[in-house]
Design a protein around this nucleic acid. Sequence first.
DNA 1: CAAGTGCTTAACCAATGGGTTAATAATTGC
DNA 2: GCAATTATTAACCCATTGGTTAAGCACTTG
Lengths: 113, 113
Amino acid sequence: MVTDLDETLAALADPTRRRIVELLRDGPRRPGELSAAFEISAPAISRHLRVLRRSGIVEERGVDSDARLRVYRLRPEPIVALQAWLDQVQAFWTDQLGAFKAHAERVSRENES
Amino acid sequence: MVTDLDETLAALADPTRRRIVELLRDGPRRPGELSAAFEISAPAISRHLRVLRRSGIVEERGVDSDARLRVYRLRPEPIVALQAWLDQVQAFWTDQLGAFKAHAERVSRENES
DNA sequence: CAAGTGCTTAACCAATGGGTTAATAATTGC
DNA sequence: GCAATTATTAACCCATTGGTTAAGCACTTG
């Protein structure tokens, strides 16, 4: 729902958060599991997760069997939205090709007549 | 570890810089032209351009006719690299579908025998 | 119910980042 | 040569950010 480009990019601009995303790519993980994969403290991971959560890149769920546990998983929406923006920007390349073609055409037509 | 991706994302995480990128989408522009499109000062724009330049998202060129002038244009490489990373992450979705199918298959096979 | 577990929040600190105005640089044109 | 133009760098402020340790919360378990 919250797919603000600003928050998405700010969230992904941090290497630790990107590594978290890469870990979550392979499936849902608990904060403790993520913590174990890094050298920084658990509170630091917790705050990274909050940033990712607020940006909508991940979502948190409780675990039925043990209410102390939480599980984080990826959400596709913000990633997709970012890809859409990049596609739209990257079209500058084809646009320039198009503009060049249009220009070439115009010139050749002028030369004919 | 600070990767290229890091600088690309950090550069794009700022709304002013994203708007600059969108303006450059329509063709090369001079710093002065960009400045005119914003309400912030010229030095601020200059520094945004430096960030974009260092990340490789834009490149600077001089203008032959007047050496005081400079022109900025987009470079496709960093955008493309970022898209590649996002594609690789976004595959988590199809991967999960695959994992689900594998799981369903395993279950149904157990039920047969 | 007391101790332990899993995670988040609070408080603090150093570094970074984006904005400002003033100063510099380089070049042009009268 | 001197004033005007175009852009960048310097110096400074304040807000934000990422890390730390200590404290707090919500459970579970012996």
